[in-house]
Design a protein around this nucleic acid. Sequence first.
RNA 1: CGGGGCGUGGCUCAGUUUGGUAGAGUACCUGGCUUGGGACCAGGGGGCCGCAGGUUCGAAUCCUGCCGCUCCGACCA
Length: 571
Amino acid sequence: MRCSQLFAPTLRETPAEAEVVSHQLMLRAGLIRKAAGGVYSYLPLAWRILKKIEKIVREEMDAKGGQELAMPIMQPAEMWQETGRWNVYGEEMFRLQDRHNRNFCLGPTHEEMITTLVRGDVRSYRQLPLMLYQIQNKYRDEIRPRFGLMRGREFIMKDLYSFDRDEAGLDESYNKMYDAYSRVFTRCGLSFRAVEADSGAIGGSGSHEFMVIAESGEAGIVYCGKCDYAANDEKAELHPICLPSEEQLPLDEKATPGMKTIAEVSQFLSISPEKTIKTLAYRTDTGTLVLALVRGDHEVNEIKLLNKVGCIQLEMANEEAITQALGSRAGYLGPVGLEGKENIIIVADATVMNMNNAVCGANKLDTHYSNVNPGRDFKPSIVTDLRLIQENDPCPHCGAPVKTARGIEVGQVFKLFTKYSTSLQATFIDVDSKEKPMVMGCYGIGVSRTMAAAIEQNYDKNGIIWPAPIAPYHAVVVPVSTKDEIQMALAEKIYTELNASGIETILDDRNERPGVKFKDADLIGYPLKITIGPKAINENLIEVKVRRTGEVLYYGQAEYLANIKELLKNL
RNA sequence: CGGGGCGUGGCUCAGUUUGGUAGAGUACCUGGCUUGGGACCAGGGGGCCGCAGGUUCGAAUCCUGCCGCUCCGACCA
């Protein structure tokens, strides 16, 4: 390919709409253009990158026995109604109707479709296990699409589904996929971590997420420096903290005018935040008020709360709801004296139950209680692990202090068990002649998001730095002056030789000043740049600059090919 | 869903307060010159000023509605 022909319109300035680095650089480097909010065209360079990621994914899926197929993007409502997700999925599902007013959706995922497909044609244990996958567009009408390809409404995903006879088989399939995913992201040249995850709305249990480590990551992860524990912070468990017992003092009411936050209250009363109980009010989708209690210096893990309460949605209660239910305002909430109240659930973190003579809101403006003793002064409906893990909290496996990091979720593996096979009657006849539901797993990789994540992890002030395995081209050949026939002849020769030896190379034959071509090369992020200028001509040396390190190397014309091949192995 | 900001040539933005012939930089085209990190000179094309109504002799500018983009928020008490 020649740059003079290439459709890669680079921008000198960053478009105002782009917030995160990957989005900015993809627009500037001429990789993507927006069609609508969260919907993008992939330009030729981006398409090459995506194809490379897909190729790696295919090879690894196939190596584990996966078989590629293609299912419809447009899916009839009926199968979603059978699993109940037509209603559960909510606003996030793109829905449409045909001319007969029949309902369809654009697939946000394909459990229903694949399970319906398989149940029709798999009858015997002899046909199992089965691993089927596809790579195609998915559609989710995100509340707030943002960050370019990181959170789009249309995105490319690889989704594989496994069907097994029993849980032992599922474990095996799951482990194969876990292994395949590790290989995929390693081959893409990414720094990543597999972490234990909550299984979320898809259902099932047993799940890992594959996180590309990056500052801009939306997910918080924790990992242990001592053992191999790593988890999404939504998932990370915590054991209750043991506290010394104290003599229980009588409950006391304290005036705390204007003191709303834990910091204000504890300072005002000259106590440590660890002696306070924080009360957060949430509302479920059914209108129940949930009061979540954690120690003042702790944070609530909303996922844990959601799972415990067992509702579909949970959001912070607004001022009105709080006043109506408790006659109080945020800042002065507490669990005391609420027993027997209709439509209120009190959920306490286990550590709270070990506290003595604590301070909490009195459900009265400008007032707190002191000497509150859980169990004596209030009895929660649920006591559980509710805390959000923080840096230096003890590892749930070995107790060593955990570290925190940010990650971009690029893949997730789930054990679904028989959730979908049961609701969709995907059964088989086992060796014992009994009819059983297939045991399923599902495994996704965000292909377009992986491209974005690769940029978030690999860039500098000049542009993108592609890991060689997913770079659109391995090398760019830049003749300093296109008008210089000797330079051009050499550039053409090098360009041809590189491509002939399997190194994907682009020739920047544009009649531009060298600075322009260098800037574009850096912006687009080819791993290697080969400059053909007076130096190369006069000294007979091939000059190679490594994008990642800035290192400049010179090779004789006889051995440059071998050297470049060697260089690329480590990029 | 709530709130703020923004919509002017492909991109970045000025002009809107105080209504009066639509601008700059960059990008693009032509010619010249130049060629080791986004040069320079000359000439040129390109805009229903987001859309629809309204006020006015006259609207990018004022008013109303809608649409789009973007950020923040959805109360961590």
